[in-house]
Amino acid sequence: MTTRIVVLGAGYSGQVAARLAARAQDVAVTLVNQRDRFVERVRLHQLAAGQDLRERPLTELLAGTGVRLVIDRVTAVDPGDRSVVLAGGDRLPYDTLVYALGSGMDLTSVPGVAEHAHTVAVAEEAQRLRARLRTGDVVTVVGGGLTGIEAATELAEQRPELKVRLVTAGALGAALSEKGRRHLRRVFARLGIEVRDEAEVAEVRADGVVLAEGEHVRSDVVVWTTGFTVPSLAADAGLAVDDHGRLLVDETLRSTSHPEVYGVGDAAAVRMPGGQELRMACATGLPAAQQAIRALLARRAGRRPKPFRFRYVNQCISLGRRDALVQFVNADDQAKESVLTGRLAALYKETVVRSAFHVQRHPSLPTSL
């Protein structure tokens, strides 16, 4: 009997899940995605800064995999009759659903963000930012996380005529080691990036941002990189979700409320046995997708799946094209004092990014499945 597997989302995790599932016998795998292109999201700050990214049509990437591709927007999941509702009106029935819809930027929690700020969350938004930068001189990047750091340094290096500022509610590089923070400060000074840390943004306007204490910080362009949202489909369908709307999954990446559903990537809340919540990253999403299909196929064969085991090694932060920071971490993602910096770190980071795309195109499962 053929098992119908529907995968929602063709990002890194979704493609890995679909490709691996399609290798099994007696399965029919359908991958649903709103856009017909795969975008390396981790490179969108490069696109915004003026670099061109390679076009990657999904039809070409999935050729020969046995995966059926449907380009459409999912409007609902109906766990009652195990089907997915599409914007075009069709319903896709499933026996197993893999929920891999990813995340987006939170544009509603602070007034003015949706109306006046730009993001680097999707390719179209990065392109709009790129076009807007042609007529702006002062850029304020809001958010001191990895996305904000990478966006600010990329813009400052590639567009030296711009005045780039980074505003963050916390301390710059707060999660890094002392060595990591020192290197970050040196790079920001070298690139001429103004840092306003411990400064919370209360409003975004057409001419800049307003800080919590009332100060208006003028800017031609505001780039918003803080906060996230996930699609509401899981919550709307009655699936168990966390406070952010992410699908709650067990140690095998299966929904805690609906055993025919698996969750991977940013839209799933993945926790280790000790309670550690894994961060949103390719480093998490790719092995999680492998684990989900490993568990799915094990159960299909009548075997008990092994729990997901994972540990972090580092955080890789690009600082333009010629510098980077590789912050080594312990198993629970806490920074060690050791770091790698400079051109060697930039090469390391580029290798990681290329490897993520390679793994996504050529995923594997352990022979012990």
Rank of each mutant, 00 (worst) to 15 (best):
G144D: 13
V164D: 03
G144T: 01
G145Q: 06
E161R: 14
G136A: 15
T153C: 11
E157G: 02
L133M: 06
R165H: 01
P160M: 06
V167M: 03
V138F: 03
D137R: 14
R134H: 12
A126L: 09
D137S: 15
E161T: 12
T147R: 01
E125V: 06
D137K: 14
G148R: 02
L155N: 04
A156N: 03
A152F: 04
E161Q: 15
V167W: 00
E125Y: 05
Q127R: 14
L146F: 14
R165P: 01
G143Y: 11
R165F: 00
R132T: 06
R159I: 01
T153N: 10
T153Y: 04
G136V: 12
V138G: 04
G144W: 04
R128G: 13
V142A: 13
V142C: 11
G144S: 14
G170R: 14
Q158Y: 05
L133N: 00
G144P: 15
T140G: 06
A169K: 06
V141C: 03
T135D: 15
A151W: 07
A156G: 02
T168N: 12
D137Q: 15
A152H: 10
A131Y: 04
R132G: 09
D137I: 00
D137H: 13
T135V: 08
T153K: 10
K163N: 02
V138N: 09
A151I: 14
E150Y: 14
L129V: 12
A151T: 15
T147I: 15
L166T: 10
R134A: 09
A151E: 09
L129D: 01
L146N: 03
L129W: 06
L129C: 13
A126C: 10
D137V: 01
R159W: 08
E154N: 10
G143M: 11
V142S: 09
A131K: 11
Q127F: 04
L129S: 10
L155V: 05
T135S: 15
